[in-house]
Structures are given as C-alpha cells and as structure tokens.
C-alpha cells in the first residue's frame, strides 16, 4: 500500500505529440482514483507511465515515497489489469495467476497456497485447471484480477477492465472490483471512458481532456459543481443542459427576458453558458420558463422529456409518476442548482 505522487509529469511522444501536459496530483494510501475522459485524452498514457510501460518525458513519479521514473515495471510492486485481460492463452488459470510469483522465485508450495487463496476470493477454485479459452468473459476478467491480487502489490492499475463485458456483467463486476479493493485496501488507479463507472467506483475522480486535468474531486463534487462545460457535459447521463444566457443588471437571463437568478454584485454583464442538470428542472405550470416538449422518452423508472427552451435544446428528467404529453409547458429552475460558465473559456464562474 502506498501513496502515488505525480510531480509535473509530462509525456511527449517521439513524433512530437504531447499526450500529457505537465500534470501533478497525489493519490492517498488506499484510495480508489478513477481517471476518466474521452478517447485520446491521455488517461491511458498516464496510467501506463505509472505502470512503467511508457517512459516519462519530464517530471517525477513516486510510489510509496520513492521516485520510480527509472524503475522497471516488474520492480515497482504494481499489478495491472488490462482491457483485453491479457491472459497467457497456453497456461491454465492456476499458472496464469501464479506466473508472476514464479518469476519472483517464490517457493512452489507458497505459490500454490496464494493461488488457492486468490481463487477462493474470486470464486475461481473450480476453474483452476482450465485454459482461458474455456472461460467466459467475466471469468477471464476475474482471472486477470486474480493475477493482480495474488502478488499483494502496493498499487493496482486498471486499464478499462470492464469495456469488453456486456452491460449486465459490467454492473456486477463493477461492484465486485470495488468491494475487493475495499477489502484489500490497496491504492488503485482505474482508467475508464465510462462516466457511470467513474461515478460509482471512485473515491476521487480525475477528469482529463486533451492531455490535461479538467477537474479533480469526489463524484459528488464533480457532478454538482463541474469546473467546466467539458466536465458538465461529460459526466452524467443524460448530460447537463448547457444553454446560452446573459448577465444583465445583476441578473441571469435567458433570451434577454426571463430572469433566473441574481448574481453577486460586481459581475460584468455579458454572454455566459448556463448549466442545468436534467433532474434539477422542475415541471411547474406556473413556472417562469416556457418549455416545448417534442419527445417523451420512456425509461421505465423515469421519463426524459426532450424539447426546446428559449429556442435551445433542453432535456428534463421526471419520475415515472409524472404523466406528460408532448406540447407546451413551463419549468421552474431553482437558482441553487444552476451552474454558470464563462461563454468562451467554458470555465466555471
């Protein structure tokens, strides 16, 4: 178990492409941190640099207080779970799990005991003598997990481990991984492009975009107080509504008309972007904001109303009890739930 510290770590590929701008953050002992972002945002590069599979161009990476920039992956005392499992196809599950220990010259009896223990923890005991090709996707994923836990490493690294599984299994494995990490208390870094995984599993989320950190925070902070329009639209399904609005006379207005909330004195007038979570907009016939519903999306437990507000696309999330048809209605927006962003930079105001 260990603390991971990145100090101005930067990655430039030989072709000159800067995958990660100088980045600093710290992961506490036992913490589960999720790196999330769209493809190409540098999250995998960052993880691979922590693993030692990718050279660090500049900056210092330390694990457990020691700089490990030049330490071989095998000697960093880490374990990694890959997206496509990366099991050795010709070895049985037992050998797959034990291979890392065997290479570290652990006595055979001890390997066997540890493999048994890991297999028991992951419900793999009856599959120990099978080859990976004889296992289902979920079981293969568990073997990959077994290979990681058996070594008792200081740090777990997960590289989109669930993206090859079907939706149902993914939900189940998500819980299993989280529970396992809790039980073992091993510091973990988890990379995913799936914001649901990020929200549900993380102690802290790091949102990345184009090689730089957009925001670091707990899932709740990220969801409720996004630092930028990028974070606002990336986290949450359906994403936060982002509409054009203006500040005029100390008031936030849409379409120059409806007044939504007051802003602190001294704010400049001008264009801004207003963020509203779909579930924070309340249907209200006497509300201030007109809303034209064009499509009602039935999702069982709740409904999504897609339509237009002030000429801009807008989505409202209502519970299943609300029976509503397409057409004209009105909304109330609670000022405390609104997010305001700079219209140009997209940063929160």
């Amino acid at each position: 178990m260990a603390q991971v510290k990145l100090d101005a770590v930067r990655k430039v590929y030989p072709n000159g492409y800067q995958a990660v701008v100088p980045t600093s953050f710290q992961i506490e002992d036992g913490e589960f941190v999720v790196l999330v972002g769209p493809s190409g945002c540098g999250k995998s590069t960052l993880l691979r640099m922590i693993a030692g599979l990718e050279d660090i161009t500049e900056g210092t990476l330390s694990i457990g207080g020691h700089a490990v920039n030049d330490v071989d992956p095998a000697d960093r005392d880490i374990a990694m779970v890959f997206q496509n499992y990366a099991l050795y196809p010709h070895m049985t599950v037992r050998k797959n799990i034990g291979y890392g220990l065997k290479n570290r010259k652990v006595p055979a009896a001890e390997i066997e005991a540890k493999v048994q223990e890991a297999a028991k923890m992951l419900n793999l005991t009856e599959y120990l003598d099978r080859k990976p090709s004889q296992l289902s996707g979920g079981q293969r994923q568990r073997v990959a997990m077994g290979r990681a836990v058996v070594r008792d490493p200081k740090l777990f690294l997960f590289d989109e481990p669930l993206s090859n599984l079907d939706a149902k299994l993914r939900n189940q494995m998500r819980i299993e991984i989280k529970a396992l990490q809790r039980r073992l208390g091993v510091t973990s870094v988890y990379v995913t492009h799936d914001q649901v995984e990020a929200m549900t599993m993380a102690d802290r989320i790091i949102v990345l975009n184009e090689g730089k950190i957009e925001q670091i925070g707990t899932p709740s902070e990220i969801y409720h107080n996004p630092a930028s329009t990028f974070v606002a639209s990336f986290m949450g399904a359906p994403p936060m509504n982002l509409i054009r609005a203006q500040i005029e006379d100390g008031q936030v207005k849409i379409n120059g008309g409806t007044e939504l909330m007051a802003v602190p004195a001294g704010w400049d007038s001008g264009e801004i972007t207003l963020g509203v979570r779909p579930e924070d907009a309340v249907l209200d016939h006497s509300g201030a904001v007109p809303f034209e519903i064009s499509i009602v999306e039935e999702l069982g437990a709740h409904r999504l109303l897609h339509g237009e507000m002030a000429g801009q696309p807008f989505t409202v999330h209502v519970s299943k009890e609300v029976d509503i048809q397409p057409g004209q209605t009105r909304l109330t927006l609670n000022p405390s739930t609104l997010s305001l962003f700079d219209a140009e930079s997209g940063k929160t105001l």
Partner: peptide, 29 residues
C-alpha cells in the same frame, strides 16, 4: 500477438529470455 501480453509479462517480472521461452515459444507451437 497482442501488445498487452508482452506488457502483462513485463509486469509479471518475465525478462526477455523468460518471455521468449515461457510465452512466445508455447504460443507459436
């Protein structure tokens, strides 16, 4: 052969010779 296999072996502490004998040769049979 997928790149990840090489990386998994590296993390598992298999050096070049071990990787060749333990992974590559059996895979290539």
């Amino acid at each position: 052969i997928p790149e990840e296999l090489v990386e998994a072996a590296r993390i598992d502490g298999a050096g070049p010779v071990k990787f060749f004998i333990d992974i590559l040769v059996p895979l290539s049979k």
